[in-house]
Design a binder for these strands. Structure first.
Length: 534
DNA sequence: AAATACCTCAACCGCATTAGC
DNA sequence: CGCTAATGCGGTTGAGGTATT
């Protein structure tokens, strides 16, 4: 599609009434609405128009780009009179007017590519779009959020078996370090590279889990038990649980992906399919047992990487800032099902049993602060996440356990020094992307705890409006205010994404530095926890 | 036929990063 | 080095459409 056709298309849609709907839903300010009218605008001063673009606006923008080229979007308004902010112009151009855009539904090939890319990158829509000529990040994002999630809700696996296999094979070697199988994941591997003991509890936990004969799938239980419980556990974890509502309307995509049904393994978004996770299914995949453990959602959080390869290990670049958890988060937008999944896991009926892993983890005696850097900002965020996890997953009864086992806050702070080492390693590697995804560096050095003290007061990470609050959260015991400030600007560690970014217990064979992260995370867990326990 | 539930997707928002001064 | 503007990115929203009851 060339520029001219863009304009023609825009114009035709205008005359054909294609814009009527959009126009009606425009977000104009009332006064401007009158001035500009349907299908046009008079730029200039005054408020910028919001809402759907009209064909006339499109034409203007296309014309502008034709003359001046892309970029300098804020100048569009000045030069063309378009009453749109630069951002809006850029978006419109990128998502709709660009001549190289490919219109229409995704082809099967593209869909497969998206699946694969998502497995590798997580919610890196822009990067994914770069791999799909003619497609936009928004398009891909929407695709994922709708079609894919629909499958999820229907209890269908998102990733095709073939993809799972590929991922598995591709990572088989790297998995040696931590397939999450009891043996493979043994911390010994990790310990070799640094003198830091990693609690093996996680793996023990797995073992334990595997011994479970059966864990009821989410479908096995009454909806009420899934959704009506634990309103006290914040909805922050909604994203872990797709709405398991039976889809009322089976659609094409569901059919389409039925063929994936046999694959119970989810790569990155490994956790996406709780709905159909059953122990039996998982058992069908020797070697994948751990990551797929349906029973262990909590542990999944920590292990997601391994198979998945998820976003980090899989492609070796681990650049995905949103490894598993991120993906999961995206796939299970709490906002869509706000009322349903509050804390279903803490209950006996929960298909996500859980907290065991956390408990074990916490009880591990191995965590010992090695260094003593009292000023470590990052220790608590992860902790909180974990603590919250525990709370969400197991309920408050575990609090005592946590309290008993956690280290002191200072100890945690000490561990932060390891973070520095970690980052240094990365810096040396010259890889901007740590294996931990969205910058291990930031994760390790900048992340900060947010709302460290309140498990109960934890707010949903799903709510963007919470950001400010989170950042203002009192965190702490770290005297260095400047560092704290910096940290506060970083990603909220309480978000699952952060956890995932750490590649918790995942296996990044390529970068053993992960161990630091893991250890740090554990350290954070143990240390901060103490302050947060009620 | 009406009500309801759910889906789609364009567009917005906020934040992070980068570039320019 | 700090500030500001521009740009990019990911998450979220919400109107309208469609399927179901």
């Amino acid at each position: 599609m060339n520029l001219q056709s863009c304009i023609l298309t825009a114009m035709s849609s205008m005359t054909s009434g294609g814009d009527t709907r959009k126009i009606s839903k425009g977000r104009w300010s009332s006064s401007l609405d009158e001035k500009v009218g349907v299908g046009g605008n008079v730029g200039g001063e005054g408020p910028l128009k919001k809402g759907p673009w009209t064909a006339a606006e499109d034409a203007i923008l296309v014309e502008y780009v034709k003359k001046h080229g892309q970029g300098n979007w804020n100048a569009v308004q000045k030069h063309s009179g378009l009453a749109r902010c630069g951002k809006s112009c850029r978006l419109r151009w990128a998502n709709h007017l660009r001549p190289d855009l490919k219109k229409g539904a995704f082809t099967a090939e593209e869909e497969n590519q998206i699946l694969e890319l998502h497995a590798k990158m997580g919610n890196k829509w822009a990067r994914m779009a770069a791999e799909l000529p003619g497609r936009t990040d928004n398009e891909i994002k929407n695709y994922w959020n709708t079609r894919i999630k629909r499958m999820q809700r229907a209890g269908l696996p998102i990733y095709p078996e073939e993809l799972c296999q590929r991922i598995l094979n591709g990572n088989q070697e790297s998995q040696n370090v931590g397939t999450m199988t009891n043996e493979a994941c043994h911390h010994d591997d990790l310990s070799q590279t640094n003198n830091f003991d990693i609690p093996d509890v996680e793996f023990k936990n797995f073992k334990f889990r595997h011994g479970l004969p059966h864990v009821p799938s989410i479908f096995d239980m009454p909806e009420s038990s899934l959704f009506d419980q634990s309103s006290d556990s914040s909805h922050s974890y909604n994203f872990l649980f797709p709405t398991m509502r039976p889809t009322k309307r089976p659609r094409e995509s569901e059919m389409l992906y039925d063929s994936f049904g046999s694959c119970s393994i989810n790569a990155a978004p490994l956790f996406d399919q709780y709905g159909n996770y059953t122990f039996e299914k998982i058992s069908d995949h020797p070697g994948l047992s751990l990551p797929c453990d349906p029973v262990l959602n909590t542990t999944d959080q920590f292990h997601g990487d391994n198979l998945t390869g998820s976003h980090a290990a899989l492609n070796g670049n681990a650049s995905a800032s949103v490894p598993i958890f991120g993906a999961m988060k995206l796939e299970l937008p709490s906002l869509q099902y706000p009322e349903t999944q509050h804390g279903s896991w803490g209950t006996p009926m929960s298909p996500l049993p859980s907290l065991e892993s956390v408990d074990t983890l916490i009880q591990s005696p191995t965590l010992e602060p090695i260094l003593s850097d009292p000023i470590s900002p990052q220790s608590s965020g992860l902790l909180e996440a974990i603590v919250y996890n525990s709370k969400s997953l197991k309920g408050s009864n575990n609090d005592l356990l946590l309290q008993e086992t956690i280290a002191t806050a200072n100890e945690v702070a000490n561990i932060s020094t390891l973070n520095h080492s970690f980052q240094t390693e990365w810096d040396e590697l010259g890889d901007p992307n740590s294996p931990l995804g969205q910058s291990a560096a930031s994760v390790l050095t900048d992340y900060t705890p947010v709302r460290m003290c309140s498990v109960d007061g934890y707010q949903s990470t799903e709510t963007s409006q919470d950001h400010d609050d989170k950042h203002e959260a009192p965190t702490t015991q770290f005297p260095d205010s400047s560092s704290k400030k910096k940290i506060l600007k970083q990603v909220d560690y309480t978000q699952p994404d952060a956890l995932l970014d750490l590649g918790w217990f995942g296996n990044n064979t390529k970068y053993e530095s992960d161990q630091f992260v893991q250890q740090d995370a554990l350290g954070a867990l143990f240390g901060d926890n103490c302050q947060h326990q009620p």
